[in-house]
């Protein structure tokens, strides 16, 4: 099980450049989702004329489902400058993988909740770290796509583009570098030094035990 929480409002609003297409995932039965807060952000963006369209769906982590849903909104999406996704980290990554030309941003951080895991298809994985990095990495999760879960770039262990630890796995940071180059956002790789907060996710933390 997992819960998502909206990123703090200021950093959320600063993510939106131009017009945004909003995707709300009302998720699976396993997910606790901040519906009211998301609606409030939508209202605020809408009031500022920054919304190009809205799509609400469940199970956006299911690629077939998402592909069909997106098809109905492609006109609106093509009018947008970016896509803002209100979902868990798997949903954001699934959207990013289907809209390769678009800047896809995560509006939420994803935290784990002890108990039964959802029936999430595992094409993408979310580490439920509670401090979503997808906005710095072009929608590819460095926590799950890198064997060492590095958050400041590639280590020296990539050989022919593959991870030294698991030769069947492409180096996550090479994927991130390519993706950001394609998006014209290599500037994101110059972000300040990232230091993980292991108190933000994980079982037994205040966040998860009080819910």
């Amino acid at each position: 099980m997992l819960i998502t929480k909206l990123k703090d409002k200021q950093s959320l609003l600063s993510l939106v450049s131009g017009k945004a297409f909003l995707i709300h995932c009302h998720g699976c039965m396993e997910l606790s989702f901040p519906l009211e807060e998301a609606a409030a952000v939508q209202k605020e963006l809408s009031g500022a004329g920054k919304v190009a369209g809205v799509m609400t769906a469940d199970y956006i982590c299911n690629p077939e489902n998402l592909r069909l849903r997106l098809r109905a909104h492609m006109d609106e999406i093509s009018q947008a400058d970016m896509v803002l996704v209100f979902s868990c980290g798997v949903g954001v990554q699934t959207v990013a993988s289907m809209l390769e030309e678009m800047k896809v941003c995560a509006a939420c951080d994803t935290y784990p909740l002890p108990g039964f895991q959802g029936l999430t298809p595992l094409e993408h994985d979310c580490g439920q770290c509670g401090e979503c990095y997808l906005n710095l990495t072009g929608g590819i999760c460095p926590i799950t796509a890198c064997s060492k879960s590095l958050v400041n770039g590639q280590c020296g262990g990539a050989k022919n583009g593959m991870c030294e630890v698991d030769p069947t796995m492409e180096c996550g940071w090479e994927r991130i570098q390519r993706r950001l180059a394609a998006l014209g956002r290599l500037d994101l790789l110059k972000s300040p030094t990232q230091i993980r907060n292991f108190a933000a996710g994980g079982e037994g933390t205040k966040e998860t035990t009080t819910v």
Binding site: G153, Q154, G156, W173
Partner: peptide
């Protein structure tokens, strides 16, 4: 450290720049 003959030299240069920004004063290479 930095790996100049890596087949992902762009990613290595990116990382080198981050290391400099963080305070690295000299480099040794692979």
């Amino acid at each position: 450290v930095v790996s100049p003959c890596s087949d992902s030299v762009d990613a290595q240069l990116t990382k080198m720049e981050r290391k400099v920004a963080a305070g690295a004063e000299y480099f040794q290479t692979q």
